[in-house]
Amino acid sequence: MNTLSSKTKQDYGSDPVSVRETDQYRAEYVHAFVQKWDSLIDWDARIQSEGSFFIDKLKERGCRQVLDVATGTGFHSVRLLEAGFEVVSADGSAEMLSKAFTNARSRGHLLRTVQADWRWLNQDVHQKFDAIICLGNSFTHLFNENDRRKALAEFYAALRHDGVLILDQRNYDALLDYGFSSTHTYYYCGTNVSVKPVHVDKGLARFEYNFSDNDKFYLNMFPLRKSYTTRLMQEVGFQKIETFGDFQETYRESEPDFFIHIAEKAYQSTDE
């Protein structure tokens, strides 16, 4: 695993909106940003807002072993452990994994962590899973279509024959078509923090994260349209895809902050 960075400042160079590379995420999650991330989420408030949605969906499908490929600070890994699932926690950021491990220890859990790039996931993770979760708008760190296809193919390969992928994304359709509007009801539940886009075009959504001590951090993300994401999933091989808006099965396209895609591998052998 890479040595943890002690950096407190992000560096996007002289033209931040020109930074449109998948590998940029490694430099975005500097130590100071990661240490503040949980104040953005607010674990207790987030539990109340999303309820048991992910736990229920996984249990409905008989899932037991879960790979959390975008662990972040560990929120969903810990929730799934506490619900009785076996969990492997992966992330591309060593800073995030370190914070997740500490958070889990403070709650009496020992995370099984692995630092992994999704594009070569199966080089670092050597088992099959009933489910993979990729949450927190993390998939939109991938700026190149080949990277997105490669990552989805790696997820597909890491699943058992009847496995399921749960992947979420911000509602970039609404952002691109109507501008920014968000209640932060479900995902960013912290108080005295704010998240807003400071630049949006068809190839970049740059978000500014403001904290109560006036610290500011940024994330550059690719604004994936919902239909594009589900099409890529189908082209990689996923057979059945359901999309929820802020945990609801029915919604108006412009209303949800986030979309949640549940994609089933759903392989059926010819003798069945």
Score class of each variant (00 low, 15 high):
212 S>T: 13
31 H>N: 12
127 Q>E: 15
231 R>F: 00
156 Y>V: 00
57 K>M: 06
176 L>I: 03
6 S>Y: 11
45 A>K: 11
133 I>N: 04
248 Q>L: 14
27 A>F: 04
267 Y>P: 00
101 F>T: 09
61 R>T: 08
226 K>Y: 04
262 I>C: 14
217 F>C: 04
248 Q>M: 12
143 F>D: 10
224 L>G: 01
244 F>I: 04
8 T>G: 07
20 R>Q: 14
199 H>L: 03
173 D>I: 00
159 L>I: 06
183 T>W: 02
85 F>I: 03
103 N>L: 04
93 S>T: 06
33 F>T: 05
245 G>S: 01
139 F>I: 03
177 D>S: 10
72 G>F: 09
34 V>A: 09
68 D>L: 11
3 T>D: 08
120 W>Y: 08
98 S>W: 15
45 A>M: 01
122 N>V: 09
184 H>L: 03
131 A>I: 10
134 C>Y: 05
232 L>T: 09
68 D>T: 07
110 L>W: 10
87 V>F: 11
64 R>N: 09
160 R>G: 10
46 R>Q: 15
97 L>K: 15
246 D>N: 08
97 L>V: 14
209 Y>Q: 08
220 N>E: 02
64 R>P: 01
40 L>E: 12
199 H>Q: 08
261 H>N: 15
239 Q>Y: 02
155 F>G: 05
97 L>Y: 08
52 S>H: 07
238 F>Y: 06
7 K>M: 13
221 M>L: 15
132 I>L: 15
250 T>C: 12
263 A>Q: 06
259 F>G: 02
67 L>V: 03
2 N>V: 05
140 T>F: 01
51 G>T: 11
117 D>R: 08
263 A>N: 08
265 K>N: 13
128 K>T: 05
153 A>T: 00
170 R>D: 02
59 K>P: 01
